[in-house]
Structures are given as C-alpha cells and as structure tokens.
C-alpha cells in the first residue's frame, strides 16, 4: 500500500469513534436511553448515573448548552500526554476536577485519567490532525 494512503487511512480511523452529532445534557437527561450515533455507524450510550452527576454539579442554564460527549482534544502541538478542552466543556471539566474555571483548560496525563475515571461515557478523545 502507498505510504500516504496508509497514513491517511490511519488518521481517518483515529476519529471514527466520534459522534455524527452531539446531544445536549438536557436532551440526554430527557431520553430513556441516551445515546449518540457515531461516524463509524455504532451507538455510544451514556451512563445515566454520570448524567445525573453532571446535572447536579452544573447550573441548570448550562444543561441546554453543554454538548455530549465532551471532547478531550489531543493535539500533538501541545506535546506528548497533554490535552485541551475548550468553551463550556473546559468549565465543566474544571468544576469536576476542582480547578480554576476558564474557557480553555490544559490537562496533563494524571488529570486526563482522573477526568476519564469520573466521566467515562460523557467524555471522548478527539485527535487533532
């Protein structure tokens, strides 16, 4: 196989697990079986306990603007083992991790692990090409 085709194929596969369209926390809370359709055709279900945890931890006006799953952006420009969250997702992650709230949150490996342990189904990795 051509090297370029192989690498492009691998890069495409990296983000195949991302949803076609994200849903809001409010929509997920109202659904009987909250899930999102993925680019690879699969379905990713959210844990109801996790949604309840988010619902109680966050102010009500955030429920209709927070989109799930929250994306942990792995950008190679940031260096190895570093990830970034932006916007409201950064504020939510900061709240969950007891950090200072800001519109951009840089996380390092132990913090990523901690966030993933607390929110395993409502967070997902995004590999920035």
């Amino acid at each position: 196989m051509d090297i370029e085709a192989f690498i492009r194929q691998e890069q495409a596969k990296l983000n195949a697990h991302l949803p076609r369209e994200r849903i809001t926390l409010a929509e997920a809370l109202n659904a009987s079986e909250p899930y999102v359709e993925l680019k690879n055709g699969g379905r990713h279900y959210f844990d109801k306990k996790e949604l309840d945890l988010l619902a109680t931890a966050l102010p009500k006006d955030w429920h209709s603007s927070l989109r799930l799953p929250m994306l942990i952006r792995i950008d190679r420009k940031l260096g190895s083992g570093t990830a970034k969250l932006v916007g409201l997702e950064a504020r939510v992650a900061a709240k969950v991790l007891n950090k200072n709230e800001s519109d951009e949150l840089i996380l390092y490996r132990p913090e990523i692990m901690s966030l993933r342990r607390k929110l395993p189904t409502t967070t997902e990795y995004l590999f920035v090409p």
Binding site: I3, E10, Q11, R76, S80, R109, R116, Y125
Partner: peptide, 20 residues
Amino acid sequence: ALAQKGHDLLREKMDALIME
C-alpha cells in the same frame, strides 16, 4: 513529514489506550 505526523498521532492514541 506526513509519516511523522501519523506516527505522533498513533503514539498519542497508544498512550491514551495504555492509560485506559
């Protein structure tokens, strides 16, 4: 350059997989 980029991304994926 493309191969290096692909390698870096796959390594990041591997690191994340190890964490999980």
